[in-house]
Design a protein around this nucleic acid. Structure first.
Lengths: 200, 200
DNA sequence: ACATGTGAAGCGCTTCACAGCG
DNA sequence: CGCTGTGAAGCGCTTCACATGT
């Protein structure tokens, strides 16, 4: 249920001091309609109060519990370009319980440099670091060329989930899940809708 | 149809010299099943050859035409952090017909610096630049705090579609479409599945 | 009175199986 | 014979309306 993340975001953005929220208001802020919000939230259990709404703090906790965010997740990042640096410094990860335990690159000029609070390690150090840090999630922020190799390396090191920012489709062993984030594809969707709108 | 972007990516990744491709192979490379590929492609028209497959070059063109990528789209980027730089230097945009016509930041220390082939301009220059460049798409790569202001600025300048990388939900006037890319949400989906997998 | 929670209807996408065509 | 193209069935998500509870 990817919308739960969105609701969580909206709840975090709520003005401080607001302790109750209705499905109507949540829906407006999230850009969806209210029956959808109620249906989604009903999956978590009956945490709303009829005639009143939802308790913000309680709801936040329940969503986090459902998403598995009550624990910490160790994450490794491969690729120290601008994107890798942006991800390594991204405060949102920490807030949501994602803990970057290592950042890697095979460029000798980058190895040893600092990125935020981390020191860049060579790719050869990845397997040990994954084991030591208990990382189950890996992020690929390399150019397209290196992505497949990195994906295999991550999988071999024991990573079970990969977020792939490289503009390629990577193949991985069964049991490893991959999610792509493709910047061009996002723009293409926007362009598609603009394109459509014109045809009318 | 967001899968068309994926097929386009797969077609681009095909080894050079391959001129024909079957729905079976496309499906395998894209990570979906073949009936879905055929159904999707049938929407474009009947461009396959029975008993043979699809002509790669022809198919690429037809998908690009459907997605509105046969024309150029002017894009502006707001926010010159690591992410903004990554986006400005991202070669994939240019390849797909997205032309970055300006990059903006309100930090005086960043204004005037070079990012790739662009010079950073102040936010005050954005409206004129949007008009001059004919930009209909804007990218928000600022921290969460500035996102809402930037969104309004973009909309006021005439931008009709916004790709928002800031971890907030921005409100925009009717007629402007917004797409969010939320790094935390992506990790949350991965974590959710890992979490689920354990419960079995 | 007010807002949640939910069964039922509606809708679109996915899957399947096979007809059609090179 | 092989692979595409597609009608029909299946499935899940969305929407709606209202009963329920405070």
């Amino acid at each position: 249920m990817p919308r739960l993340s969105l609701y969580l975001q909206v709840l975090d953005d709520l003005p401080a001091g607001v302790s109750r929220v209705s499905s109507e208001e949540l829906a407006a802020r999230a850009g969806v309609n209210s029956p959808k919000v109620r249906k989604d939230l009903s999956y978590l259990g009956s945490y709303g109060v009829r005639g009143v709404g939802y308790d913000v703090e309680h709801l936040r906790f329940q969503i986090r519990r459902e998403l598995g965010l009550t624990r910490e997740w160790a994450v490794v990042i491969v690729g120290v370009g601008n994107l890798g640096r942006a991800l390594a410094n991204y405060g949102g990860f920490r807030e949501q319980g994602f803990n970057v335990v290592g950042i890697f690159d095979d460029d000798p000029n980058k190895v040893g440099t600092r990125v935020g609070e981390h020191r860049v390690e060579p790719l050869s150090a990845l397997p040990d670091a994954v084991r030591a840090g208990g990382a189950r999630i890996g992020i690929i922020a390399t150019p397209a060329e290196g992505a497949q190799t990195v994906a295999e390396l991550l999988a071999a090191a024991g990573v079970q989930a990969i977020l792939n920012f490289a503009p390629t489709v990577v193949r991985v062993p069964a049991g490893v899940q991959v999610r792509r984030v493709d910047f061009s594809a996002e723009l293409q969707v926007l362009a598609f809708h603009l394109h459509q709108g014109e045809a009318l």
